[in-house]
Design a protein around this nucleic acid. Structure first.
Lengths: 143, 143
DNA sequence: TATAATTTAATTGTACTCAATCAAATACAA
DNA sequence: TTGTATTTGATTGAGTACAATTAAATTATA
Protein backbone atom coordinates (compact mmCIF):
# COMPACT_ATOMS: atom_id res chain seq x y z
CA UNK A 1 0.00 0.00 0.00
CA UNK A 2 1.83 3.12 -1.25
CA UNK A 3 1.57 6.47 0.42
CA UNK A 4 -0.43 7.86 -2.50
CA UNK A 5 -2.62 4.87 -3.28
CA UNK A 6 -5.70 6.60 -1.91
CA UNK A 7 -5.23 9.20 -4.65
CA UNK A 8 -5.56 6.67 -7.47
CA UNK A 9 -8.68 7.09 -9.56
CA UNK A 10 -9.42 3.36 -9.28
CA UNK A 11 -9.62 3.66 -5.51
CA UNK A 12 -12.24 6.40 -5.58
CA UNK A 13 -15.91 5.70 -5.00
CA UNK A 14 -17.12 9.11 -6.05
CA UNK A 15 -15.59 8.95 -9.49
CA UNK A 16 -17.58 5.99 -10.87
CA UNK A 17 -20.68 7.57 -9.36
CA UNK A 18 -19.98 10.80 -11.20
CA UNK A 19 -19.06 9.07 -14.45
CA UNK A 20 -21.94 6.59 -14.45
CA UNK A 21 -24.40 9.34 -13.69
CA UNK A 22 -23.28 11.33 -16.71
CA UNK A 23 -23.10 8.27 -18.95
CA UNK A 24 -26.65 7.25 -18.13
CA UNK A 25 -27.89 10.77 -18.72
CA UNK A 26 -26.31 10.53 -22.17
CA UNK A 27 -28.54 7.52 -22.85
CA UNK A 28 -31.54 9.75 -22.19
CA UNK A 29 -30.34 12.35 -24.66
CA UNK A 30 -31.79 11.03 -27.94
CA UNK A 31 -35.17 10.41 -26.32
CA UNK A 32 -35.28 13.73 -24.51
CA UNK A 33 -34.05 15.81 -27.43
CA UNK A 34 -37.01 14.57 -29.45
CA UNK A 35 -39.15 16.27 -26.81
CA UNK A 36 -36.78 19.24 -26.65
CA UNK A 37 -36.14 18.60 -22.96
CA UNK A 38 -32.88 18.45 -21.04
CA UNK A 39 -32.44 15.85 -18.33
CA UNK A 40 -32.82 18.46 -15.62
CA UNK A 41 -35.97 19.80 -17.20
CA UNK A 42 -37.24 16.22 -17.49
CA UNK A 43 -36.85 15.40 -13.79
CA UNK A 44 -38.42 18.76 -12.96
CA UNK A 45 -41.42 17.90 -15.10
CA UNK A 46 -41.48 14.49 -13.48
CA UNK A 47 -42.01 16.07 -10.06
CA UNK A 48 -44.69 18.36 -11.45
CA UNK A 49 -46.51 15.58 -13.26
CA UNK A 50 -46.84 13.96 -9.87
CA UNK A 51 -47.51 16.82 -7.46
CA UNK A 52 -48.98 19.45 -9.86
CA UNK A 53 -48.00 22.35 -7.60
CA UNK A 54 -44.92 22.97 -5.46
CA UNK A 55 -42.75 25.80 -4.14
CA UNK A 56 -39.30 26.37 -5.60
CA UNK A 57 -37.81 25.54 -2.23
CA UNK A 58 -39.53 22.17 -1.97
CA UNK A 59 -38.75 21.40 -5.60
CA UNK A 60 -35.11 22.14 -4.86
CA UNK A 61 -35.20 19.80 -1.89
CA UNK A 62 -36.63 16.99 -3.98
CA UNK A 63 -34.15 17.47 -6.84
CA UNK A 64 -31.15 18.48 -4.72
CA UNK A 65 -30.87 21.65 -6.79
CA UNK A 66 -30.81 25.29 -5.72
CA UNK A 67 -32.50 28.39 -7.09
CA UNK A 68 -29.43 29.26 -9.16
CA UNK A 69 -30.16 26.23 -11.27
CA UNK A 70 -33.94 26.16 -10.97
CA UNK A 71 -34.82 29.80 -11.60
CA UNK A 72 -33.64 29.96 -15.23
CA UNK A 73 -34.84 26.41 -15.90
CA UNK A 74 -38.34 27.17 -14.60
CA UNK A 75 -38.46 30.36 -16.66
CA UNK A 76 -37.72 28.25 -19.75
CA UNK A 77 -40.52 25.81 -18.91
CA UNK A 78 -42.82 28.76 -18.25
CA UNK A 79 -42.07 30.30 -21.67
CA UNK A 80 -42.94 26.95 -23.16
CA UNK A 81 -46.32 27.01 -21.47
CA UNK A 82 -45.73 23.91 -19.34
CA UNK A 83 -45.83 25.67 -15.96
CA UNK A 84 -46.88 28.88 -14.24
CA UNK A 85 -44.81 30.77 -11.66
CA UNK A 86 -46.73 32.80 -9.05
CA UNK A 87 -45.78 34.37 -5.74
CA UNK A 88 -47.72 32.99 -2.80
CA UNK A 89 -50.33 35.41 -1.46
CA UNK A 90 -49.71 34.29 2.09
CA UNK A 91 -45.94 34.79 1.86
CA UNK A 92 -44.58 36.91 -0.93
CA UNK A 93 -41.13 35.34 -0.59
CA UNK A 94 -42.44 32.00 -1.75
CA UNK A 95 -42.75 31.24 -5.45
CA UNK A 96 -45.24 28.55 -6.34
CA UNK A 97 -44.76 26.55 -9.50
CA UNK A 98 -47.82 24.88 -11.00
CA UNK A 99 -48.18 22.64 -14.01
CA UNK A 100 -50.51 23.78 -16.81
CA UNK A 101 -53.01 21.67 -18.71
CA UNK A 102 -50.56 21.63 -21.61
CA UNK A 103 -47.66 20.63 -19.39
CA UNK A 104 -49.70 17.84 -17.93
CA UNK A 105 -50.77 16.53 -21.32
CA UNK A 106 -47.13 16.52 -22.40
CA UNK A 107 -46.64 13.59 -20.03
CA UNK A 108 -48.01 11.31 -22.75
CA UNK A 109 -45.04 12.20 -24.94
CA UNK A 110 -42.65 11.03 -22.23
CA UNK A 111 -44.42 7.97 -20.91
CA UNK A 112 -42.26 5.46 -22.77
CA UNK A 113 -38.89 6.98 -21.93
CA UNK A 114 -38.27 5.05 -18.71
CA UNK A 115 -38.82 1.74 -20.47
CA UNK A 116 -36.71 2.72 -23.48
CA UNK A 117 -33.80 3.88 -21.34
CA UNK A 118 -34.21 0.98 -18.94
CA UNK A 119 -33.74 -1.49 -21.75
CA UNK A 120 -30.37 0.14 -22.56
CA UNK A 121 -29.03 -0.23 -19.05
CA UNK A 122 -27.86 -3.73 -18.32
CA UNK A 123 -28.36 -4.37 -14.64
CA UNK A 124 -29.68 -7.41 -12.82
CA UNK A 125 -32.79 -7.07 -10.72
CA UNK A 126 -30.74 -7.54 -7.58
CA UNK A 127 -28.04 -5.04 -8.53
CA UNK A 128 -30.66 -2.47 -9.46
CA UNK A 129 -32.34 -2.92 -6.08
CA UNK A 130 -29.04 -2.77 -4.20
CA UNK A 131 -27.95 0.30 -6.11
CA UNK A 132 -31.24 2.04 -5.38
CA UNK A 133 -31.04 1.18 -1.70
CA UNK A 134 -27.40 2.23 -1.31
CA UNK A 135 -27.86 5.53 -3.16
CA UNK A 136 -30.95 6.55 -1.24
CA UNK A 137 -29.16 5.50 1.92
CA UNK A 138 -26.45 8.00 1.05
CA UNK A 139 -28.91 10.74 0.10
CA UNK A 140 -31.06 10.22 3.19
CA UNK A 141 -28.01 10.41 5.41
CA UNK A 142 -28.23 14.05 4.40
CA UNK A 143 -25.16 13.78 2.26
CA UNK B 1 -49.60 0.09 -11.11
CA UNK B 2 -50.73 3.28 -12.83
CA UNK B 3 -50.03 4.10 -16.44
CA UNK B 4 -47.59 6.84 -15.43
CA UNK B 5 -45.88 5.17 -12.47
CA UNK B 6 -42.67 4.69 -14.43
CA UNK B 7 -42.47 8.49 -14.66
CA UNK B 8 -42.37 8.97 -10.90
CA UNK B 9 -39.08 10.29 -9.60
CA UNK B 10 -39.01 7.61 -6.91
CA UNK B 11 -39.05 4.90 -9.55
CA UNK B 12 -36.00 6.21 -11.36
CA UNK B 13 -32.57 4.72 -10.91
CA UNK B 14 -30.70 7.45 -12.74
CA UNK B 15 -31.97 10.21 -10.50
CA UNK B 16 -30.42 9.06 -7.20
CA UNK B 17 -27.23 8.38 -9.12
CA UNK B 18 -27.21 11.92 -10.43
CA UNK B 19 -28.16 13.46 -7.09
CA UNK B 20 -25.76 11.40 -4.97
CA UNK B 21 -22.91 12.13 -7.35
CA UNK B 22 -23.43 15.86 -6.99
CA UNK B 23 -23.96 15.67 -3.25
CA UNK B 24 -20.70 13.79 -2.72
CA UNK B 25 -18.83 16.24 -4.93
CA UNK B 26 -20.16 18.97 -2.64
CA UNK B 27 -18.42 17.23 0.26
CA UNK B 28 -15.14 17.62 -1.62
CA UNK B 29 -15.68 21.33 -2.10
CA UNK B 30 -14.20 22.75 1.14
CA UNK B 31 -11.12 20.53 0.85
CA UNK B 32 -10.60 21.22 -2.84
CA UNK B 33 -11.21 24.95 -2.63
CA UNK B 34 -8.34 25.19 -0.14
CA UNK B 35 -6.17 23.89 -2.97
CA UNK B 36 -8.00 26.04 -5.52
CA UNK B 37 -9.03 22.95 -7.47
CA UNK B 38 -12.42 21.98 -8.85
CA UNK B 39 -13.53 18.36 -8.65
CA UNK B 40 -12.93 17.85 -12.36
CA UNK B 41 -9.46 19.36 -12.10
CA UNK B 42 -8.82 17.10 -9.11
CA UNK B 43 -9.64 13.85 -10.90
CA UNK B 44 -7.59 15.05 -13.86
CA UNK B 45 -4.60 15.61 -11.60
CA UNK B 46 -5.26 12.21 -10.05
CA UNK B 47 -4.76 10.54 -13.41
CA UNK B 48 -1.61 12.56 -14.06
CA UNK B 49 -0.15 11.88 -10.63
CA UNK B 50 -0.40 8.23 -11.58
CA UNK B 51 0.55 8.08 -15.26
CA UNK B 52 2.64 11.29 -15.58
CA UNK B 53 1.99 11.57 -19.32
CA UNK B 54 -1.10 10.88 -21.43
CA UNK B 55 -2.86 12.03 -24.59
CA UNK B 56 -6.03 14.10 -24.34
CA UNK B 57 -7.91 11.28 -26.02
CA UNK B 58 -6.81 8.66 -23.47
CA UNK B 59 -7.41 11.07 -20.61
CA UNK B 60 -10.92 11.61 -21.93
CA UNK B 61 -11.49 7.87 -22.06
CA UNK B 62 -10.39 7.45 -18.47
CA UNK B 63 -12.50 10.32 -17.19
CA UNK B 64 -15.46 9.89 -19.56
CA UNK B 65 -15.02 13.50 -20.64
CA UNK B 66 -14.55 15.01 -24.10
CA UNK B 67 -12.27 17.72 -25.42
CA UNK B 68 -14.94 20.36 -24.96
CA UNK B 69 -14.54 19.89 -21.24
CA UNK B 70 -10.88 18.96 -21.12
CA UNK B 71 -9.34 21.59 -23.40
CA UNK B 72 -10.16 24.63 -21.26
CA UNK B 73 -9.54 22.70 -18.04
CA UNK B 74 -6.09 21.60 -19.19
CA UNK B 75 -5.25 25.14 -20.26
CA UNK B 76 -6.08 26.28 -16.74
CA UNK B 77 -3.82 23.64 -15.21
CA UNK B 78 -1.11 24.60 -17.68
CA UNK B 79 -1.31 28.27 -16.71
CA UNK B 80 -0.91 27.16 -13.14
CA UNK B 81 2.29 25.32 -14.02
CA UNK B 82 1.01 21.86 -13.09
CA UNK B 83 1.14 20.37 -16.59
CA UNK B 84 2.56 20.91 -20.06
CA UNK B 85 0.64 20.52 -23.34
CA UNK B 86 2.65 19.49 -26.41
CA UNK B 87 1.72 18.13 -29.83
CA UNK B 88 3.13 14.70 -30.54
CA UNK B 89 5.97 14.74 -33.07
CA UNK B 90 4.86 11.46 -34.57
CA UNK B 91 1.28 12.62 -35.08
CA UNK B 92 0.53 16.31 -34.96
CA UNK B 93 -3.15 15.65 -34.24
CA UNK B 94 -2.31 14.19 -30.88
CA UNK B 95 -1.83 16.44 -27.88
CA UNK B 96 0.25 15.02 -25.06
CA UNK B 97 -0.30 16.21 -21.53
CA UNK B 98 2.53 15.76 -19.05
CA UNK B 99 2.76 16.59 -15.39
CA UNK B 100 5.46 19.01 -14.24
CA UNK B 101 7.71 18.70 -11.21
CA UNK B 102 5.54 21.31 -9.52
CA UNK B 103 2.34 19.49 -10.42
CA UNK B 104 3.74 16.28 -9.07
CA UNK B 105 4.83 17.85 -5.81
CA UNK B 106 1.35 19.29 -5.40
CA UNK B 107 0.17 15.75 -4.73
CA UNK B 108 1.34 16.15 -1.14
CA UNK B 109 -1.24 18.89 -0.63
CA UNK B 110 -4.01 16.51 -1.69
CA UNK B 111 -2.92 13.27 -0.08
CA UNK B 112 -5.31 13.50 2.86
CA UNK B 113 -8.42 14.41 0.91
CA UNK B 114 -9.63 10.85 0.24
CA UNK B 115 -9.51 10.01 3.94
CA UNK B 116 -11.17 13.28 4.96
CA UNK B 117 -14.01 12.90 2.46
CA UNK B 118 -14.31 9.18 3.16
CA UNK B 119 -14.97 9.84 6.81
CA UNK B 120 -17.92 12.05 5.83
CA UNK B 121 -19.59 9.39 3.72
CA UNK B 122 -21.42 6.85 5.82
CA UNK B 123 -21.32 3.56 3.95
CA UNK B 124 -20.70 0.03 5.21
CA UNK B 125 -17.73 -1.87 3.84
CA UNK B 126 -20.09 -4.20 2.01
CA UNK B 127 -22.23 -1.45 0.50
CA UNK B 128 -19.15 0.42 -0.64
CA UNK B 129 -17.85 -2.71 -2.35
CA UNK B 130 -21.22 -3.48 -3.94
CA UNK B 131 -21.61 0.10 -5.12
CA UNK B 132 -18.13 0.06 -6.65
CA UNK B 133 -18.77 -3.23 -8.40
CA UNK B 134 -22.19 -2.23 -9.74
CA UNK B 135 -21.02 1.16 -11.00
CA UNK B 136 -17.97 -0.19 -12.78
CA UNK B 137 -20.18 -2.95 -14.16
CA UNK B 138 -22.31 -0.23 -15.72
CA UNK B 139 -19.37 1.77 -16.98
CA UNK B 140 -17.58 -1.24 -18.41
CA UNK B 141 -20.69 -2.30 -20.24
CA UNK B 142 -19.77 0.73 -22.33
CA UNK B 143 -22.66 2.70 -20.98
C1' DT C 1 -43.32 48.33 18.47
C1' DA C 2 -38.62 48.61 16.67
C1' DT C 3 -34.88 45.90 15.35
C1' DA C 4 -32.46 41.90 14.61
C1' DA C 5 -32.46 37.33 12.63
C1' DT C 6 -34.27 34.22 9.35
C1' DT C 7 -36.28 32.65 5.16
C1' DT C 8 -36.86 32.65 0.33
C1' DA C 9 -35.78 33.56 -4.63
C1' DA C 10 -33.11 35.92 -7.71
C1' DT C 11 -28.74 37.34 -9.41
C1' DT C 12 -23.85 37.01 -10.38
C1' DG C 13 -19.65 34.85 -11.66
C1' DT C 14 -16.94 30.80 -12.52
C1' DA C 15 -16.62 26.37 -14.25
C1' DC C 16 -18.16 22.53 -16.17
C1' DT C 17 -20.76 19.30 -19.73
C1' DC C 18 -21.71 17.95 -24.06
C1' DA C 19 -23.71 17.95 -28.87
C1' DA C 20 -22.43 19.74 -32.99
C1' DT C 21 -19.21 21.62 -36.00
C1' DC C 22 -14.66 22.66 -37.72
C1' DA C 23 -9.93 22.16 -39.28
C1' DA C 24 -5.77 19.87 -39.61
C1' DA C 25 -3.26 15.60 -39.95
C1' DT C 26 -3.09 10.94 -41.08
C1' DA C 27 -4.59 6.56 -43.03
C1' DC C 28 -6.72 4.23 -46.66
C1' DA C 29 -8.40 3.03 -51.30
C1' DA C 30 -8.85 3.14 -56.13
C1' DT D 1 -0.62 9.45 -56.33
C1' DT D 2 -5.09 11.39 -55.48
C1' DG D 3 -9.11 11.69 -53.57
C1' DT D 4 -11.91 9.89 -49.52
C1' DA D 5 -12.55 8.59 -44.90
C1' DT D 6 -11.02 8.71 -40.27
C1' DT D 7 -8.88 10.50 -36.26
C1' DT D 8 -7.90 14.09 -33.14
C1' DG D 9 -8.33 18.24 -30.58
C1' DA D 10 -10.36 22.92 -30.64
C1' DT D 11 -14.31 25.81 -30.83
C1' DT D 12 -19.05 27.19 -30.19
C1' DG D 13 -23.43 27.55 -28.04
C1' DA D 14 -26.93 26.16 -24.81
C1' DG D 15 -27.79 24.64 -20.43
C1' DT D 16 -26.70 23.42 -16.17
C1' DA D 17 -24.35 23.52 -11.25
C1' DC D 18 -23.27 25.92 -7.36
C1' DA D 19 -20.94 29.26 -4.06
C1' DA D 20 -21.63 33.75 -2.77
C1' DT D 21 -24.25 37.77 -2.54
C1' DT D 22 -28.39 40.55 -2.61
C1' DA D 23 -33.02 42.04 -1.61
C1' DA D 24 -37.48 41.56 -0.05
C1' DA D 25 -40.67 39.56 3.18
C1' DT D 26 -41.58 37.46 7.43
C1' DT D 27 -40.69 36.03 12.09
C1' DA D 28 -38.64 36.37 16.53
C1' DT D 29 -36.89 39.06 20.18
C1' DA D 30 -35.74 42.71 23.27
Amino acid sequence: MGKYDALKLDNQLCFPLYAASREIIKIYHPYLSKLDLTYTQYITMMVLWEVKKITVKDLGKKLYLDSGTLTPLLKTLEKRGFITRKRSEKDERVLVVEITEEGDKFKDQAVNIPAEVGSCVKLSEKDAKDLYRILYGLLDNSL
